[in-house]
């Protein structure tokens, strides 16, 4: 592991000032915030991440879950995944988020991983994680051997000729469907970023994964007020029953009145280069009867632009069936 200086800032302003000196907030950052460490320490051991300074933000009092004035929820950046998933209001009003988190990682990792860190979870692409290999995300311009190599688990939506790495987060899929808002404090002040705008498609800059700039500190995430009568479900399909990343997952929210869908939110995981909200599926569901044919049509729409690689063609139909089944199970809940 690259040697680094360990610093525990006393307040967010000090953390932001220290991080603002980094040349980037993306891959190659020389200053990193440390939350739970579950991704960052792993990648530091692999020399994929080599920060000169590590800023421990765990004692900045960003660990509260509070009601907002409009009836939504404010979730601090260092709230642990397990605390969020087991929070009574999350279990009652944002069930899809609780289910998504509890389907991810293990109990130990959920006790460590933070909400802010999970927003920045890095891909499990084996080429990204191995410094002996080329990778456009890790070393811009070096090439993407995944496109012609081992790509069974990699993305089918949002890919480019430069990168097909999957976003591995479960939590983010639910937050995309819930239309969460990310609150950032930076050296130029505070700003809010809607969830759909936070992660970037790889395009020809796969090393840029989010809109964060040097010094930007995610302070909290807010969820809008719960949708009354919303039926929610997170379904995750993977190679083993637990403690495994998704091959395909779906976060769905349905409101049904007199047999017709009056409100639908859909996001997919394990298939996209970012947490994959599907407005195509939502449009296909809106106003339609809540039945198998509608659900399948929504899944067809969600995967219409999917592009398979040599080993992952199966994921297109897997994702369709995952979404179809999730919608059906949610409608019956």
């Amino acid at each position: 592991m690259h040697i680094f200086e360990f610093i525990r800032p006393t307040d967010p302003a000090a953390a932001i000032a220290a991080a603002a000196q980094s040349k980037t907030a993306q891959q190659g950052a020389d200053v990193r915030f440390m939350g739970g460490g579950t991704t960052l320490i792993d990648l530091m051991k692999l020399n994929v991440e080599t920060p000169d300074r590590v800023l421990d933000i765990n004692r900045l009092s960003l660990d509260k879950i509070e009601d907002t004035a409009d009836g939504g929820l404010k979730i601090g950046a260092t709230v642990r995944n397990s605390d969020l998933a087991n929070h009574p209001k999350v279990q009652k009003d944002y069930l899809v988020l609780s289910q998504a988190i509890l389907n991810g990682a293990s109990a130990q990792i959920r006790n460590m991983a933070t909400v802010g860190g999970n927003l920045l979870q890095r891909t499990r692409c084996v080429y990204f994680r191995d410094t002996a290999m080329s990778c456009n995300k890790r070393e811009p311009g070096s090439g993407c051997p995944a496109i012609t190599g081992h790509n069974r688990t990699l993305a089918i939506l949002g890919t480019s000729e430069h990168c097909i790495a999957t976003n591995p987060s479960d939590m983010c899929v639910a937050m995309a469907a819930l239309e969460a808002t990310i609150h950032v404090q930076g050296s130029k002040g505070s700003r809010v970023v809607s969830f759909g705008d936070f992660h970037l498609l790889p395009g020809n800059t796969p090393h840029r994964e989010t809109v964060l700039e040097p010094g930007d500190l995610i302070t909290h995430v807010t969820l809008p007020p719960p949708v009354v009568g919303s039926k929610q479900l997170y379904l995750k399909l993977r190679d083993r029953a637990s403690y495994e990343f998704a091959l395909a997952s779906a976060a769905v929210m349905l409101t049904i009145a007199s047999g017709r869908i009056t409100h639908a939110r859909v996001a997919l995981g394990g298939v996209g280069t970012k947490p994959w909200r599907s407005p195509e599926a939502e449009t296909a569901l809106a106003g339609k009867p809540a039945n198998d044919a509608t659900f399948r049509q929504a899944a067809e729409a969600a995967l219409r632009n999917a592009k398979a690689q040599s080993e992952n063609k199966f994921k297109i139909e897997l994702a369709r069936r995952c979404l179809t089944y999730a919608l059906k199970m949610a409608s019956m809940s």
Binding site: F6, M34, A107, Q108, N111, M112
Partner: peptide, 18 residues
């Protein structure tokens, strides 16, 4: 796996300094 403040965590993905 060890416990920190009563909760189970993975000690390999934590820095001692934290």
């Amino acid at each position: 796996t060890v416990h920190v403040n009563g909760k189970r965590v993975l000690s390999c993905l934590n820095l001692a300094l934290m």
